[in-house]
Amino acid sequence: MMGLLKRDLALAIRAGGGFGLSLAFFLIFTALVPFGIGPETGRLSEIAAGLLWLGALLACLLSLDRIFQLDWEDGSLDLLATSPLPLEALAAIKALAHWLTTGLPLVVAAPILGLILNLPGPAFVPLVLSLLAGTPALSAIGTFGAALTVGIKRGGLLLSLLVLPLYVPTLLFGAMAATRGAQGLDPTPTLALTLGITLGCVALLPFAAAGALRINLR
């Protein structure tokens, strides 16, 4: 299992692996916001927390279709499915690898990009904590969506349509935690809810993803 994680991380980092693309998208998205909304710092700082969450969510979405599609195309998904590794573990590791290469860099970059959007001082810690608590759910839900659409040529758009509605609770509570921090309120309850969604997703969705893979590999 560690071997699969190491392989996926190595593939992401090597040429053509797409590591950093989501991060670059996040950066550009955030840099474009002032152009669209206007540079008034007051207006920006009000919506900064929500925008950063939205940007992180969209950046995460970009790389979802690679989770299983590349392995499916070159035939290694069939071989992995016949290996001693349970498909549930495969899905869980794929989600973890996706989070390590996509979600975690977004969490690290978010406070820096918060400066661009004039995020209020007290919101920084809740923002990072809420992203840390919420982005694993994005990867787990995304892995399930990727398992549903594996084998569909150019299924990326369908994957987005399937996954985005499922992202609503995470976005809602994650962004609310950061916003509450910005307003000087206690973010702990919403952080706890975000973490709860993540724990539920991480515990259950690998099984759903494995079921979807089994059907799609037939």
Binding site: R7, L11, D74, S76, D78
Partner: peptide, 10 residues
């Protein structure tokens, strides 16, 4: 299978 199942970057 027919497909080689190789990772070209490795």
């Amino acid at each position: 299978a027919h497909a080689d199942g190789l990772k070209t970057q490795l």
